[in-house]
C-alpha cells in the first residue's frame, strides 16, 4: 500500500512539473490572447491594448502567470476555449469520452491479438506460421499509420462506399453508428500490434527454455496448462511494462488518426487547439493526455509487482 501511495505521490509531482513545462511551451506559441483579440478589432488604440494586456495578465512575468493559472485550475476553473466559445471543461469532457472509446477498444483488441500472435509464434518456432507472424509484425512496426488510413479510406469509403470516410456518428445518416469507428480502429490496431507481438514472442521464447517449464512438461501437465500457468505467467512480467508504454504510444499516435478521420476526440482537439491558437484548451488537453499516460505506467507498476511476488510492494525501487 505504501508503495502505491509513494508512486501516486511521485506521479502527481511529475504531473505538476509537466504542467509547468507545457505552460512554458504554450507561452512560446505565436501571438498571445490580446493579439488575437486585436486582429478582430482594428480600431483599438495602443492604450486599449495595454489595458487589455493587464486585464488578461499577459504583461505579468511568466512565473506569475503560471501561478495564477494553477490557482484557478485547482479551483476547477480551466478557462474558456477560444475556438469553441465554451468553458474548456465542457469541450474536453465529450472529447475524452470519444478518445477513450476509440483508444480503449483499440488497446484491448490490439493487446489481445498481439499477445496471442506473439505466443503462437514462440510456441511454433521455426514453422511457417512463425514466419508469417514475424513478417506481419515487421510490416506493422514499419507502417506509417496515416498512410494505411488513407488507403483504407480510399478502398472502403471512396471505392466500395461501404463505410464512412470519417466524422462522428450522427442521426439520420445511412451508416450505423459503429461504422464510424471501424476505419480509425482498424488503422490503430494494425499499427499497434507489431511491436507488442515481437516483444511477446521474445519474452515467451526466453521462458520456454527454462528448467521449470521442462519440469512441468515432464510431470505430465497438459501443454495448455503449461502454456497458461508456467510460460505465460512468467513471460507476462516484462510484457506488462511494454503494454503500458504502448498505451502511451496509442494516446499519442491517436492525434494523427483522429485528425485524419475527423473523430472528435482529444487528439483532434489537441491538433485543432494548437492550430487555432486556443491556449487554454491546448494546455488542458495536453495535461489530460499526459495524466492518462502517467496513469498507464502507474497501473503497470502495480500490475508488475502483483505478477512478480519477488518484487516487494513496499521496497523502494
Amino acid at each position: 500500500m505504501r508503495f502505491i501511495l509513494t508512486r501516486i505521490g511521485a506521479a502527481i509531482l511529475i504531473l505538476a512539473i509537466k504542467s509547468f513545462v507545457i505552460f512554458a511551451l504554450i507561452g512560446l506559441m505565436p501571438g498571445d490572447p490580446v493579439d488575437l483579440l486585436m486582429t478582430a478589432n482594428p480600431d483599438a488604440t495602443p492604450e486599449d491594448v495595454a489595458k487589455l494586456r493587464s486585464i488578461y495578465g499577459v504583461d505579468q512575468p511568466f512565473t506569475a502567470r503560471y501561478v495564477a493559472w494553477l490557482a484557478s485550475a485547482l479551483h476547477g476553473d480551466l478557462g474558456f476555449s477560444r475556438i469553441q466559445h465554451r468553458p474548456v471543461l465542457e469541450v474536453v469532457g465529450p472529447a475524452l469520452v470519444n478518445t477513450l472509446m476509440l483508444t480503449g477498444t483499440a488497446f484491448l483488441i490490439s493487446t489481445a491479438i498481439a499477445l496471442s500472435l506473439g505466443t503462437i509464434a514462440a510456441l511454433r518456432q521455426g514453422r511457417w506460421i512463425e514466419r508469417v507472424i514475424n513478417l506481419l509484425a515487421y510490416c506493422g512496426i514499419s507502417l506509417p499509420g496515416f498512410w494505411l488510413g488513407l488507403l483504407l479510406i480510399y478502398v472502403f469509403a471512396v471505392k466500395l462506399g461501404l463505410l464512412p470516410a470519417g466524422g462522428m456518428p450522427r442521426a439520420g445518416e445511412n451508416h450505423p453508428a459503429w461504422a464510424y469507428l471501424l476505419l480509425p480502429l482498424a488503422t490503430l490496431v494494425t499499427v499497434e500490434i507489431g511491436g507488442l507481438t515481437r516483444y511477446t514472442r521474445t519474452a515467451v521464447l526466453e521462458v520456454i527454455g527454462q528448467d521449470h517449464v521442462r519440469t512441468a512438461h515432464a510431470k505430465g501437465l497438459s501443454p495448455w496448462r503449461v502454456t497458461i500457468r508456467h510460460i505465460l505467467r512468467n513471460a507476462m512480467i516484462p510484457v506488462v511494462t511494454v503494454i503500458a508504454l504502448d498505451f502511451g504510444h496509442l494516446l499519442s499516435g491517436v492525434t494523427l488518426i483522429e485528425t485524419m478521420f475527423g473523430w472528435r476526440g482529444m487528439g483532434r482537439l489537441i491538433y485543432e487547439s494548437i492550430m487555432g491558437n486556443d491556449y487554454n484548451l491546448a494546455l488542458v488537453c495536453l495535461l489530460a493526455t499526459t495524466a492518462m499516460i502517467l496513469l498507464g505506467s502507474l497501473l503497470a507498476d502495480i500490475a508488475y509487482s502483483w505478477l512478480d511476488p519477488r518484487i516487494s510492494l513496499d521496497r523502494k525501487r
Partner: peptide, 15 residues
C-alpha cells in the same frame, strides 16, 4: 514520458 506526437506538433508551431 511526454506524449510525443502532440509535443512534436507544439514544437513545430512555436514562434
Amino acid at each position: 514520458s511526454l506524449p510525443s506526437l502532440p509535443l512534436l506538433i507544439i514544437l513545430a508551431a512555436l514562434d
